[in-house]
Design a protein around this nucleic acid. Structure first.
Length: 812
DNA sequence: GCTCTGACTTGCTGCGAAAGCT
DNA sequence: AGCTTTCGCAGCAAGTCAGAGC
């Protein structure tokens, strides 16, 4: 495995039996990762970090395969958001990641990064590597010395994005452009240049069936009361600012594959325009190195095509019809096309051919035999195995997502101002890795590139991070998997804290009840906000920037989000996290109702309901009431206590199915409290009508049986069946039996239909994963002899290994 | 005391596989 | 066996919240 440090690898693979199991790593260490849990630790670490200096190119450990690298002045120069720095000096070779909090931790980790950025001069082949593991790409493309077998990837889908496959066509690539090109159907590239036919005008907006269209909508609708969705105003608060920044690199997301398809962009001919500066996203050092602008017509075309493909594959989604998405996409695409390109207007582009090509590719993939699929999967797994594990304090732990995100168009949720922008490719030089001090630095898989930085910070849990290309002030991290003991430990701490709230909750409620009428308006607001968070499980509601979707939480509720309904009801209507609508009318205590009335008095829409409050003030106050208490603890507490109480109240001595139904009802209750919604499946209505048809049939059968029964009792023969054929005589007892069976069927079907309808917008999984103390479920299963597998799937079992040995008498 | 940064948790969706149904 | 529905999971967006920095 190319990328891995020799000494690391053995550890990873040799002891492998437990590799895939939900191995339980028992460790005693309890240091917590989170700052809050261990303030001291954190503090010191940060201090330390600050003190350290930023590594400059020269500091980098030679161990990185830098031989080749062009020492780019690295990122240091560029804004690295990272405040810290590397412990460079000591850099000696060690890099393994450290994540553990313990001093001696050493995590070895292997990481793969995908970028290719500069395919070294050989430049050719840049076939859609997006989906290949980096190393594989290298192998194929170039010089990677120890790389794995060259064509391993054939036919594989990209590690980056699972569903797509890449085009293996060869393309001449020049360095900086590569990014965009991977995966674009070659032919489409060609097409680009040719002038597209007369094409229909914008088939684009016309023909789509927008399956997604309804999502927002439905999300919006409240499941609690089926109220029609109101429309929310979009936010366009911000004019696509940095188009320039983004424009730079390329991207692509779809990955398709083999067959080149002539995708044409309708009436437009794409001109290959030479864009000299299109290597914006190329590390400076590399650019310098670049012999000359290799960018030429063809690369530019490829790039453009890639970007077009990214859009084309989204043609049948809701995004493709959103003006903001289109505008952002066009702005970024234009940057790639260049100023003088003939493509100017979105409306004149026909993305259909690319879209259709993509559909064909998907279909092809679907048609593969089971064996072929299996083989591909195994192959992929083999290639990725080395990136899947880290050694933390000597224990092999599973790594969470070890892939960087492939280039693509940003799909924000709700009315996100940046939707449609190009998400550029992430390169090694974007990535900071964190490994044990003594661990060997994982080899940078791309010749000529190097990691942005190698750190040895054992006070944090991340293994690697890079800046989010859409919002460079933010980061994307690689963490250990949910099943790791590190995560399990913090999960457990989370639930322990929520349990602690049980001991304080009465006092807290008494306090806020008293403060509903406090003279101090801040106090009153804190009291009311806490009440809402407690009673309605609202989120805290941090402030948001204008370049994010316009959503709110408790502290950021606006005047118009809460309506007073006399005598003492409040109607909430707002978009919360992920732009999911929260619509709920609740009866509240009169003092709360009055207080809200006061807060609203004399103020208008757009203003904050809690103008004296923000999340830090609120949390600071909560902390005075209970150590470590913050707003989100209430959600965990209320979810878990609800499950615990419902399970214990409702479980009867029934059969297994009944017990599980009890669990599901409780789970549903929690999901509703937390407002966990899902979009209605596209086929929901079809499925429902199918069920009702069946129901009608059953009822008809029932009627017929009843008639027959009546006649049989009178000694008459049954009437002819619906098909006109005569039926056999049946004894009344037999008919009665059939009737009761049919009734049972009808009842069951009615139940199923109700449940289906009921749950069509309710997502049960989120609460199970994040809010329900697994010990409640495990203990309940033990008490009622329900196999835990009926409640938790494989990954939840792995995630909750820490909870499995709980005592059956455990109560939250 | 406020803003910004950084780290980590929470959340929904889409896709492919498994399970269920006819 | 073939089709439909559900399940499981990866992907990645979007929250929360602590602490640094000004």
């Amino acid at each position: 495995m190319a990328a891995v440090d020799a000494c690391i690898k053995p550890n990873f693979f040799d002891d492998g039996e437990d590799d895939d199991g939900p191995a339980v790593f028992k460790r005693n260490k309890t240091v917590s990762t989170r700052t809050q849990l261990n303030p001291e630790l954190k503090k010191s670490s940060s201090q330390r970090n600050d003190g350290s200096s930023v590594r400059s190119a020269s500091d980098t450990p030679k161990s990185q395969n830098s031989g080749l690298q062009k020492g780019k002045a690295v990122s240091s120069a560029k804004v690295s958001p990272v405040k810290s720095n590397v412990a460079s000096s000591n850099a000696s070779t060690s890099i393994s990641k450290s994540s553990s909090l313990q001093p001696k931790t050493e995590i070895n980790e292997e990481k793969k990064l995908l970028n290719k950025h500069q395919s070294q001069s050989n430049g050719d082949t840049d076939d859609s590597d997006d989906d290949k593991p980096l190393s594989a790409r290298l192998a194929t493309t170039a010089t990677l010395p120890k790389s794995q077998s060259p064509n391993v990837l054939k036919g594989l889908s990209s590690p980056v994005s699972r569903s797509s496959q890449s085009v293996r066509t060869k393309v001449v690539v020049k360095k900086s452009d590569e990014d965009l090109e991977d995966d674009i159907p070659l032919s489409s590239k060609f097409q680009f240049k040719q002038s597209g036919g007369p094409s229909s005008k914008n088939s684009y907006d016309s023909d789509e069936d927008k399956p997604l269209a309804s999502k927002l909508q439905k999300n919006g609708s409240s499941k609690r009361d089926n109220e029609p969705l109101k429309s929310f105003k979009g936010l366009n608060k911000r004019p696509l600012s940095e188009a320039s920044t983004s424009g730079q690199s390329s991207i692509k997301r779809p990955k398709p594959s083999s067959t080149p398809v002539p995708a044409k962009i309708a009436q437009v001919t794409v001109k290959a325009e030479v864009k000299t500066d299109d290597d914006d996203n190329v590390p400076i050092a590399q650019r310098m190195k670049k012999p000359a602008p290799l960018v030429n017509k063809s690369t530019s075309i490829k790039k453009s095509t890639k970007v077009a493909t990214m859009f084309a594959v989204m043609k049948d989604t809701d995004y493709a019809t959103k003006p903001r998405f289109i505008e952002n996409f066009m702005n970024d695409w234009r940057q790639i096309l260049g100023k003088n390109h003939i493509i100017k207007k979105f409306e004149l582009c026909d993305f259909t051919p690319i879209y259709e090509w993509h559909q064909r590719e998907k279909e092809k993939k679907k048609q593969m035999s089971t064996e072929e699929k299996k083989a591909v999967k195994e192959e992929k797994l083999k290639l990725e195995e080395k990136y899947m594990w880290a050694i933390v304090d000597g224990v092999k732990e599973k790594v969470g997502n070890f892939r960087v995100e492939p280039p693509g168009l940003f799909r924000g949720r709700g009315e996100h101002p940046k939707m449609g922008k190009l998400k550029r490719r992430i390169c090694p030089s974007d990535i900071t890795i964190n490994i044990g001090k003594d661990a060997a630095v994982p080899e940078c898989p791309i010749p000529g590139e190097r990691w942005k930085e190698v750190k040895h910070d054992n006070t944090v849990t991340w293994l690697a991070f890079w800046n989010d290309p859409i919002n460079p002030r933010e980061f994307k991290y690689v963490f250990l998997a949910a099943s790791s003991s590190l995560k399990g430990q913090s999960d457990k701490e989370k639930y322990e804290k929520a349990r602690l709230l049980k001991d304080y909750i009465h006092g807290i409620r008494a306090t806020y009840t008293k403060d509903f009428v406090s003279k101090d308006i801040t106090k009153r607001q804190i009291a009311v906000a806490t009440y809402l968070i407690d009673k309605l499980a609202l989120r805290a509601g941090n402030e948001k920037d204008d370049d994010e979707a316009d959503t709110v939480g408790c502290c950021t509720l606006k005047m118009e989000n809460v309506t007073l309904i006399p005598p003492n009801k409040l109607q909430f209507d707002f978009l919360g996290k992920d732009s999911i609508r929260y619509f709920n009318t609740v009866e509240v205590e009169l003092p709360v109702y009055k207080a809200i009335g006061q807060f609203k008095a004399g103020r208008g829409d757009g203003e904050d309901l809690f103008d004296k409050l923000d999340t830090s003030k609120l949390n600071a106050h909560l902390k005075e009431l209970m150590p470590g208490l913050t707003a989100k603890v209430f959600r965990t507490y209320n979810a878990s206590i609800t499950l615990d109480e419902m399970l214990n109240r409702e479980t009867k001595d029934g059969d297994m199915a009944e017990k599980i139904a009890v669990y599901q009802i409780a789970n549903k209750e929690v999901a509703i409290i937390c407002n966990h919604q899902r979009s209605v499946s596209k086929s929901h209505s079809v499925q429902m009508s199918r069920l009702s048809e069946k129901m009608d049939e059953l009822k008809a059968v029932l009627d017929e049986l009843q008639t027959d029964l009546m006649r049989a009792k009178k000694g008459k023969p049954p009437l002819k069946g619906a098909d006109g054929k005569p039926k056999r005589n049946s004894a009344p007892e037999a008919l009665e039996r059939k009737i009761s069976q049919t009734n049972a069927k009808i009842e069951k079907m009615e139940r199923d239909m109700r449940t289906k309808e009921d749950l069509k917008t309710v997502a049960l999984g989120t609460s199970k994963i994040n809010y329900l103390d697994p010990r409640i479920s495990v203990a309940w299963c033990k008490r009622h002899e329900v196999p835990i597998e009926k409640i938790f799937n494989k990954s939840l079992l792995a995630k909750f290994t820490w909870a499995m040995d709980v005592d059956p008498s455990f109560r939250f």
